[in-house]
């Protein structure tokens, strides 16, 4: 047994103008989870401490919170892995969400992103027209298992730096879950799903891998990349900066071996996009003044033919 001091964010949106903090001391074994320590605190010290929880075994996804500044499931985090030498553990609600009461947050924006993506199977034809159940081969199912393991705990959404500055981004979980249906052989709405996810700023993923801390190992980032690939393969919403960027980067590497910055910027913004070009002009001028402009044309690297051979050997003919 040890003294664990839970330094808890306290706030009630119905009464408090500003949040405050309470330190609650509990005697628990250090191997106990943070969630169990919170349960003890609620049962023995202060019944008003509010937090979401249900299964206590990383299945329901309810108890994600910020523990010492790191978002994760309280039921999966042993006290001893996070308490400092004085036994203190800082507990806050998930970032990127509006706090409601103590560690409970308003989840609505997160659920909205899910529902927009219609997270249920939409087959192309009616069940009545099938003599058997709709079958999926083990190989096809294997592709979906990781994404289907999502417990919607919103840890990735809370960690996402893009969501933190622009909540219109669908966020990692919703895109990973969309993947689960996009790649499901039984589903008949692949193109519609891809169009929707593109509208919800699929290409705003910054590739930062903050979502790699998924407690269920969904690896949302890799699923996002899968959805981007599917977008390009299906030719959905191609006249947007994201797909344009991906294609022009490939084009310049194939041509020169290098990512040719000047051509990539022009190709992504679009050389006829006057408004877009006007927006990047001030920065371009500031860079030019400092002699910091990338060269307008690049000389190909030595043996660039080899690079072209690689592309030509692996490009799927469209």
């Amino acid at each position: 047994m040890a003294q664990v001091k839970l330094d808890i964010f306290r706030y009630d949106e119905a009464v408090d103008a500003v949040p405050h903090r309470d330190t609650v001391e509990v005697d628990v074994p250090v191997t106990m989870t943070v969630l169990d320590a919170l349960e003890t605190a609620k049962a023995e010290v202060d019944g008003s401490i509010s937090f979401r929880r249900s299964c206590r075994s990383a299945i329901c996804g309810s108890c994600s919170m910020n523990i010492n500044g790191v978002t994760g499931l309280a039921c999966k985090t042993p006290c001893k892995s996070v308490m400092n030498d004085e036994g203190v553990i800082q507990i806050d609600p998930m970032p990127n969400f509006q706090p409601m009461k103590d560690l409970v947050v308003h989840m609505d924006p997160f659920w909205d992103k899910y529902t927009r993506l219609k997270p249920y199977l939409q087959p192309a034809d009616r069940d009545e027209d099938h003599e058997t159940e709709r079958r999926v081969s083990p190989a096809d199912m294997k592709k979906l298992v990781d994404a289907a393991n999502c417990v919607m705990c919103a840890t990735c959404y809370a960690l996402c730096p893009v969501v933190s500055v622009d909540p219109s981004f669908a966020g990692p979980a919703a895109i990973a879950y969309a993947y689960r249906f996009i790649e499901d052989v039984r589903d008949g709405k692949k193109k519609e799903r891809l169009a929707q996810i593109n509208e919800d700023y699929l290409w705003l993923c910054a590739h930062c891998y903050a979502c790699s801390y998924c407690p269920k190992h969904v690896d949302p980032h890799d699923r996002i990349v899968d959805v981007k690939r599917a977008t390009i393969q299906e030719g959905v919403m191609m006249d947007h900066p994201g797909p344009r960027h991906a294609l022009v980067v490939n084009k310049t590497i194939k041509k020169t071996g290098m990512l040719a910055e000047t051509e990539v910027i022009q190709g992504t913004v679009g050389i006829f996009n006057i408004r877009g070009l006007a927006k990047i002009t001030p920065l371009a001028i500031r860079m030019a003044v400092k002699g910091k402009m990338p060269p307008p044309f690049l000389r190909p690297i030595p043996k660039v033919d080899e690079v072209r051979t690689i592309f030509e050997s692996l490009e799927v003919p469209t």
């Binding site: 990349v225 980067v249 590497i253 071996g257 490009e315």
Partner: peptide, 19 residues
């Protein structure tokens, strides 16, 4: 490594991981 190409910079992955 003067004949080396771009690493793919997270963008080539977006179209083709093998490349």
């Amino acid at each position: 490594l003067t004949a080396a190409s771009c690493c793919g910079a997270s963008v080539v992955n977006d179209t083709n991981r093998d490349i």
